[in-house]
Design a binder for these strands. Structure first.
Lengths: 198, 198, 198, 198
DNA sequence: GATGAATGAGGTTTCATTCAT
DNA sequence: CATGAATGAAACCTCATTCAT
């Protein structure tokens, strides 16, 4: 079996085990077993536990970004802001719902376990909040100080993350519902008199 | 030195170490050292690593709940809903800001490390979201289905958590700013036409 | 059992195993077993394989130096040079013969295995050759360039090392015989016309 | 490329790696890489790590012996003993200086690593000391008991080894200097009254 | 009540070695 | 003839946990 395929199998297993157990509690043994290969092979291809975790992180971050970008591309660029927002949110929740282990890895594990990884995922989150900051600045009907926009985007990203978790742990929850809820929260805030005041 | 005092010293140390390192990476050795006692004493008083972690969780959860309850009590019960919300948010952010290790323990560590603890903290979170659900149901100017209220409260709790993290890691951020941001997000959503539709 | 005693037991075992197997081939398991303790205890007291090896080296080097110094002290300081030399050689060979594993460690293993240790033992050997250099410079009846003295002392130290090995591996060989042989080699060289030429 | 050539390439690499790292620390991987061939080929030609090491040993021992023999052959057989000794020493030091890895392999590595190899190199050393024993017995101006001759030859071989190491690690040292030093040591000892006594 | 001494179990990592192609 | 793919075995090291004092 060619190397590239085996590598993906190993990464699949690693994302799952890391996502569920956490970095420290995950054992290379379990990952290898789940991947159906021997431990030395994991080391041959991915060098160390740290490298393996980083590789998982990068793959999942790239996948999430690609999914969101694809979602953004689906909406026509000149349409109303709300439609664009909707597409992005749907893409996000669809991806996190369909890939719960990857999402747990990015959202929960990577931020929890010390420095080698926090930076990796902080970049992703910064990209996200920056993007949201610029979105809401454009969408706001009233003036919004940069600081307030930053704070607001942190709140919104947190809300999205929480909804993603909720959708992943509550039965019969659809990406649509999560997206609708977040839109419900976002839209009026941006056009409210309160927003205009600041 | 009486036992109760020693126990609190140990819990203080444990909250700090668990909060920074995570459950697995934290060592009983380090906790005992930081608490200034010997390892066997830790075991005598708190039985096992798992028990110790659970004890930390319970203490921090109780402290957070007490702080929020006290905040809610400060506002006169018959005043406007907004004032009550403001008091609660201020109490919440003031507590998390003043006790970052405890907050990290509850928000990040407890949820990342497998089953023994997730349940413990899920209870806390459920109490919180239930409380928020009833708050927003009462505050909403339009009808709100229970399901929508639940979803919304998950989003809001996530936003609060994210803001608490943001306040803890960004210099010159005050509890007021976090509370204001969240209120900014909450208030218009509850009185907007969108909310009324549902 | 007190810590200091256990430490010596472990060092005894380690000197023996390292001396016979070499650094890499020696296993902490075997050392612990021979010392009659568990592996973790070895690590608790001596921290790592490298540290353990270094501790062995230092102990054996100190013992050898002490033995030689004591031998040198036995001869009256104003007596003939030959008597002093004889005492030192006897002390040296008596020590190496009585402590073959320690000698193997210093002479063979430490110099063979890379940088962390080579320096440690190079110091010892440098002390030795320097000492010998000054000895033969004083003892020589004719002039001796410093360079020639250095070369000569390297040859003599090598001869001593080889004789120590020979005495350790050949039955019925006494320290006296080794010392006599080396003296036989040294003495005439220092007073010969050849030496005088240089 | 014919097998014999490939084999020599592998042995070259192995001598270098074994000589520098030691038997245990050397990895078949590194040897194969340095030789520019794949690992399975190394196994196909040389069967195992142990066999490979032994093959290196034998090749280097043969080379050293051949060099010394050639040196001995250069001197006219009926000339003075000193000239013969000089030729042999020059040949020895020239070879060890020109082939430091091979020398390290024979002198340091082979003797440090346990039984399979010690015997191999002990034979070489025995041949050497026997040769030296007969040389000095013939060269001695006085009577020399066989036992004393043996002891003396061990000392001389050790001196030679030490000088070879010294020449290999000290800059600006020539084979001539090493040979001269050893001769300086040997010659007077053989004709001194002390030697005559025994 | 408190601790110095000790260990069983398990984790990451490496390496010599072998097939199937 | 040559190699990419793969592994069994064993090494170093750590940690939660327990006695005897």
């Amino acid at each position: 079996m060619p190397r590239a395929v085996r590598e993906q199998q190993i990464l699949d297993a690693a994302v799952r085990v890391f996502g569920r157990r956490g970095y420290r509690a995950a054992s290379m043994e379990e990952i290898a077993e789940l991947a159906g290969v021997s431990k030395p092979l994991v080391y041959l291809y991915l060098h160390s536990k740290e490298d393996l975790f980083t590789a998982c992180l990068r793959r999942e971050a790239a996948a999430l970004k690609a999914a969101v970008r694809a979602g953004a591309g689906d909406a026509e660029p000149d349409g109303p802001v709300e439609r664009g927002l909707w597409s992005v949110l749907m893409a996000f929740f669809t991806h996190t719902t369909g890939n719960p282990d990857g999402w747990a890895l990015l959202h929960r594990q990577a931020r929890t376990h010390g420095e080698p990884f926090a930076a990796e995922v902080a970049t992703l989150r910064a990209e996200l909040t920056d993007h949201v900051t610029s979105l809401i600045t454009r969408a706001s009907t009233g003036p919004l100080t940069p600081r307030a926009a930053t704070a607001l985007s942190h709140a919104l990203v947190g809300a999205a993350e929480s909804l993603a978790d909720w959708a992943n742990t509550t039965p019969a929850t659809t990406p649509e519902e999560a997206a609708r809820t977040l839109l419900h929260l976002t839209h009026p805030a941006l056009s409210s008199p309160l927003a205009r005041q600041r």
